[in-house]
Amino acid sequence: MVSTQQDSAAHPVHSDARDAIVIDGVSKVFRPRRGGTVTALENMSLTIAEGEIVSLIGPSGCGKSTLLMLVAGLDTPTAGTVTVRDAQVNKPNPDVGVVFQKDLLFDWRTVIENVLTPFVMRGQSPKQHVRRARDLLAQVGLAGFEDRRPYELSGGMRQRVALCRGLIQDPDVLLLDEPFAALDALTREQMQLDLQKLVVGSRKTGVLVTHDIAEAVFLSDRIAVMSARPSRIVEIIDVDLPRPRTAEVRESPEFATTHARVHSLFKKLGVLHG
């Protein structure tokens, strides 16, 4: 049965770990120019433990991305608070890396310069971080591409560069806003493996917004299923698959069961019908 959001929010997987992100009673109301109000989020609460990967999955326009922008400090909630590692969020924070659906690489900068962009944007010299940038690029199979320009790369390679850029400051929290949605199925699968390696390996906390149930199951410790506007968390599903997860995990019965659970939830919510 559908549990209340307060219940499910109170039970992170790693009960011993600290809370990395606390979303407490957050509402977000937009006032479009043409008048009226749009309630994107209403009294939403969610607690994410350190080192945990949580997916937000739900229909289009359910406020998943809005929630992510609030955690990133790119927008402020109408009510409630967002706390990242015990500090209330009110502006962008270098401890939080963001990767968007579009790779948003700068054409005028080389691959490695793009990875190092966050330092430049904060007015710091990127010099001492060049090695880490090279390491990150090598980890996603882009060794030798450091001095290329973005236009010389494929879509998947570009998104890998964006991922490295999101990780260059070694953030504790990585926010991913449908990062692989624009990629083809094979590239997406590879990116999911790369992401797991980079995020799980370093015990980072990850929040992934996605439309893709398989992606959510493969990458997450918990999946927060959201309903359409005004949006709320309908249920939080634990994913009990051992890590590191290999491509074979997708064939396992546990994977299929979890996938089916999310799927049936969507049917029950009326997101999927037929």
Partner: peptide
């Protein structure tokens, strides 16, 4: 979205202008 990205990296307005 480019501007939003630069802001998420903590760039003040002036730097967004010069760099983006």
């Amino acid at each position: 979205e480019m501007v939003r990205l630069a802001r998420s990296m903590g760039a003040p307005k002036r730097r967004v202008f010069v760099r983006v």
